[in-house]
């Protein structure tokens, strides 16, 4: 019954629509499909991590050691501590380094050839594969000290974070209004005083936001950790011994044949994703509030 009606509707459309507009509508539909296709994996990954992670979640995962192969229960308390430790070491190394470099690029040599070259190198550094940075840290720290360690892992993560910190800090400093500097210099302040007492405090909220995002990402990085921090089944006792991390634990347990370990891999993923998600939303919220 509906088909003749439908046919006339189609005919009418054909007659009223030129092939040019028809082509336009088809392309519009295709872009909508593309957007949907791009969102499907995101939704799929997030929902699987949420469902599988939440179903095995219990508070004791934060306080217990990983289970031996075949045993049930246990947690990843040591890996959580190890992640905070390696990311902490990475922050100590990369944040002062990156922020000082950014001050030079944004305050003292802005828009010069030298700054442009360093910005270029920073971008290239951020494109170096994380596994290559791991190999570098292995040669630089592990071979030199003779042991896998939290320091080696932290060093690798620091190299990884450095370009992000330089870039976000430079952008934050550059977005401080010029009037601030002119007012400070007008009052007789030196460049050091202007930077440390006026410009830096104004830029700090934005810098912290960028640094937080870099930290959250570093916490989930596995490739540079694999053969620098390595892993351990025990609690951290020293920064100079192999250290378990969340990312490494997810990798090991995902490929392990035991159900209880695989479940912990999902819970660990949930923790890592939650970390990234919360920092992303938080930083967005801070940016919007300002």
């Amino acid at each position: 019954m509906a088909s003749p009606e439908f046919a006339t509707a189609l005919n009418m459309k054909r007659s009223s629509m030129s092939p040019r507009t028809l082509f336009s509508s088809v392309m519009t539909v295709i872009t909508f499909v593309c957007a949907a296709l791009a969102l499907i994996p995101l939704v799929a990954v997030l929902s699987y991590v949420l469902i599988n992670g939440a179903s095995s979640f219990r508070l004791s995962v934060f306080t217990q050691l990983p289970p031996a192969p075949g045993l049930t229960g246990g947690g990843f308390g040591n890996a959580l501590v190890g992640t905070f430790l390696t990311v902490g070491i990475a922050s100590l190394l990369s944040i002062p380094f990156g922020v000082l470099a950014a001050i030079f690029l944004a305050e003292f040599y802005r828009d010069t050839k030298l700054a442009e070259t360093i910005n270029f190198l920073t971008n290239v550094l951020s494109g170096v594969p994380s596994i290559v940075i791991g190999a570098f840290a292995y040669a630089f720290v592990v071979l030199a000290t003779g042991t896998f360690s939290a320091v080696a892992g932290g060093f690798a993560l620091a190299v990884l974070m450095l370009p992000t910190i330089v870039r976000t800090a430079t952008e934050s400093l550059e977005s401080v209004p010029r009037d601030f500097r002119q007012a400070a210099i007008g009052l007789g302040a030196t460049r050091f005083q202007t930077t440390v007492q006026i410009v830096l405090p104004a830029a700090i909220p934005a810098i912290i936001t960028g640094v937080m995002l870099a930290l959250a990402r570093a916490a989930g990085e596995t490739a540079p950790i694999l053969f620098t921090a390595s892993t351990s089944r025990y609690w951290v006792r020293s920064v100079w011994e192999p250290t378990a991390t969340m990312a490494r634990l997810v990798f090991d347990f995902a490929t392990a044949p035991y159900k209880s370990q695989q479940e912990l891999a999902w819970v660990g993923s949930l923790v890592l994703v939650a970390l990234v998600l919360v920092t992303s939303i938080l930083s967005r919220w801070i940016v919007r509030k300002r």
Binding site: A35, L42, Y48, A216, A247, V276, L277, S280
Partner: peptide, 24 residues
């Protein structure tokens, strides 16, 4: 929000994609 969601795709750790890849 859509722009934000697609940016989030880039922030999910690689190892989580791997886990999802193995089991899903």
């Amino acid at each position: 929000p859509v722009v934000f969601l697609i940016e989030l795709l880039a922030a999910i750790p690689s190892v989580v994609y791997g886990l999802w890849g193995i089991f899903v």
